[in-house]
Design a binder for these strands. Structure first.
Lengths: 157, 157
DNA sequence: CAAGAATGTTATGCTGTATAATTCTTTCGG
DNA sequence: CCGAAAGAATTATACAGCATAACATTCTTG
């Protein structure tokens, strides 16, 4: 006797079931798909400077806040301090940032000359991505998206 | 001689540097923070039914598309088919879904009675989360957010 | 000065995700 | 009909992201 069988659900020529069904109404699902797509594009865009999004964000933050302390920086970025250590170690190894002792237990973070140059290149590349995003959703929608996302981030506290 | 030192950057009473600086303008960063916050809330909300977001999404998809084939389901959810296997195995082990052979190499997916009951409970719980989101950003913004996210997801293709 | 808090670090595990290779089955062209 | 190719599910594996606990050192404060 054969195993129990079933007629397969057919979707030939139809739209993607997940983009049709109830999942489309879920904020979390939409955010996840969008975030993955955007990150993928950013990663590809920044490949030339060999920067992952997290690394890029550190450079941006340190550039805007020279001397920021490790614990402040990691908290501000929503990264556990424990996970922040190898991140910084790698950036320091590549000569992009400096950890400068403020006192015996505290490090201030600074971009090196090379770090600033790399960030400049990264920002130039990022402009391409930015333009791609704007081409898809429009400048107005992008600004509104960010505003809504900032509000949603409040959920985490 | 002491180690090189630096004055620490001060932020007493000031707003979070990452929420002030250039990072705030980046779509990817905003999406990531929002997605993490929303997922965290969903995870906490669905803890009572012991469903992770990915598991929840599978139940929703299968419920809306009974008999959907594994490969279609995984592709539709943006999950690698290899990673989809243990996900389904766990849901099957818990008696929430059935893998029914369509032919020797293909499985159709169905919710069990228990699976439908669990999904019903999960959806009820999710309503609470949904209300929390709406309370923060408003219904109109939620709908617009989803629309924008769907467009952004196109970046991944 | 002693107790406690702060900072950075190490170690560790879990989850999610990506890729390659394998097995088994079905389809299809000659 | 039969062998080759393609399809579906699975296994194995590796890596990045994220969380927690424990720890060493240093600073602060009563």
């Amino acid at each position: 006797m054969r195993r129990k069988q079933a007629e397969p659900a057919e979707f030939e020529g139809q739209a993607d079931p997940a983009l049709q069904g109830p999942l489309q109404q879920y904020v979390g699902y939409a955010l996840r798909r969008a975030q993955l797509a955007v990150f993928q594009d950013v990663i590809a865009t920044l490949a030339d400077v060999d920067l992952r999004p997290a690394q890029f964000s550190v450079l941006i933050l340190v550039d805007a806040n020279p001397g920021i302390v490790q614990s402040h920086a990691s908290a501000s970025l929503g990264i556990q301090k424990a996970n922040f250590v190898p991140l910084l170690t790698e950036l320091e190894r590549r000569g992009l940032i400096d950890r400068v002792a403020v006192d015996g237990r505290t490090n201030g973070l600074f971009l090196t000359r090379k770090g600033r140059a790399t960030l400049k290149r990264a920002n130039a590349l990022h402009t391409v991505h930015h333009a791609r995003v704007d081409a898809i959703i429009g400048t107005e929608n992008r600004e509104q998206l960010i505003e809504i996302c900032l509000k949603l981030a409040e959920l985490a506290r």
